[in-house]
């Protein structure tokens, strides 16, 4: 396996090709697996150094599964993940695993659950270094102090020996961020890191993450259900629906000019603080279904206001309609022909 460590600023850090993650669905205790839940179905994207990709979608659409698969909390059913030009789809050797886990990290949604209540802040933040057996104790201590200062826990030595329950929600999430960034990872999955925080703290934490991303040149996969947050944080947006990526493009382009009916509906659902404002809103009916053994048709077919005959027969593929703005919908497929 070639060792490619030197990479320039625009290099692709993470490349995901046709990623699939299916979960077996068991009915009853002794029955054999007959059907699969297609949590992530054929998702492809790439993240360059210093870029933030927002993964947007309803709950249950496979955002978190995608994120967890990328940091190998789940192993992918199919597809290929390339990380820093190395194939990390199947981390078979211990050396590869150590290398990968030293460079990828995840920030979890719930700061109350993602910190072990029986560990001190020092233990929690220095744990990744501890696991990777990096540096001496002194080095770890200094690194911990430094990163705590950077995430705005100051003075760090006042917090070092406290337990998570002695901290506020915002402080906890800062500690979780510090823990994720202490090893200078190349790639971080942030799974709705602000959704459990108070609105007043949310912006602070988002700003902090923005600063850290630009300072440390990390690649971020930001999972959120909030389009406003995605717009604030990300360079690119990818909209997911029932395990499928339905739209992908630069953030402003997707927000200003949504193409897929689902994205349109999502954006029209964002509240606007102006009582006079009238906009064309798209109403979609029903709720999100379950992607258990889905039929080969557009997953949005049942709810789509523009559903056509062809939508029920085939699955639309993600096509580039306008300079990197990709959409998976037959409405735009036709236009091109």
């Amino acid at each position: 396996m070639p060792e490619v460590e030197m990479v320039d600023a625009t290099d692709v850090v993470l490349k995901v090709e046709n990623l699939k993650k299916f979960f077996p669905v068991r009915k009853g205790v002794f029955s054999r697996v007959r059907s699969f839940l297609h949590a992530v179905d054929d998702v492809s994207f790439e993240i360059k150094r210093g870029e933030v990709l927002a993964l947007v979608g309803e709950s249950g659409c496979g955002k978190t599964t995608t994120g967890k698969t990328l940091v190998r909390l789940h192993s992918p059913t199919d597809g290929k993940i390339t990380f820093l030009n190395r194939d990390v789809t199947h981390l078979r050797s211990a050396v590869d695993r150590k290398w990968f886990h030293g460079k990828s990290q995840m920030i979890f949604q719930d700061p109350f659950e993602s910190l072990n209540p029986r560990k001190t802040i020092f233990d929690i933040v220095s744990e990744p270094m501890n696991i990777q057996s990096e540096g001496s104790l002194k080095y770890r201590e200094e690194k911990t102090m430094e990163i705590l200062k950077r995430v705005g826990i100051s003075p760090p030595n006042a917090f070092l020996w406290r337990y998570p329950h002695e901290l506020s929600g915002g402080q906890r999430q800062r500690v979780a961020i510090a823990r994720a960034l202490v090893m200078n990872p190349e790639f971080v999955v942030a799974d709705e890191p602000t959704s459990m925080l108070d609105v007043s703290i949310r912006t602070q934490v988002m700003k902090l993450m923005m600063n850290l991303i630009s300072d440390m040149h990390m690649s971020f996969l930001y999972i959120t259900h909030d389009l406003a947050v995605a717009r604030y944080m990300s360079d690119y947006i990818s909209v997911m629906y029932l395990g499928k990526m339905v739209e992908y493009g630069e953030t402003e382009e997707v927000i200003q000019n949504p193409l897929h009916p689902y994205t349109k509906a999502l954006i029209s659902a964002v509240p606007v603080p102006d009582p006079e404002f009238k906009r064309k809103s798209i109403q979609i009916k029903g709720g999100i279904g379950k992607a258990i053994d889905p039929l080969p048709r557009c997953r949005f077919y049942d709810r789509c206001p523009f559903a056509m005959d062809v939508c029920a027969k085939e699955e639309p593929s993600l096509v580039d309609v306008d300079d990197g703005h990709k959409v998976a919908c037959f409405l735009y497929d036709k236009k091109e022909e």
Binding site: D110, S114, N116, E127, P128, Q132, M183
Partner: peptide, 21 residues
């Protein structure tokens, strides 16, 4: 609990998780 996943993401082995968490 997510802190177990958090340790896994950092590359913790199974015995490490059992003993430490």
């Amino acid at each position: 609990k997510p802190f177990i996943e958090s340790a896994k993401v950092s590359g913790a082995s199974d015995p490490y998780i059992i003993v430490n968490h």
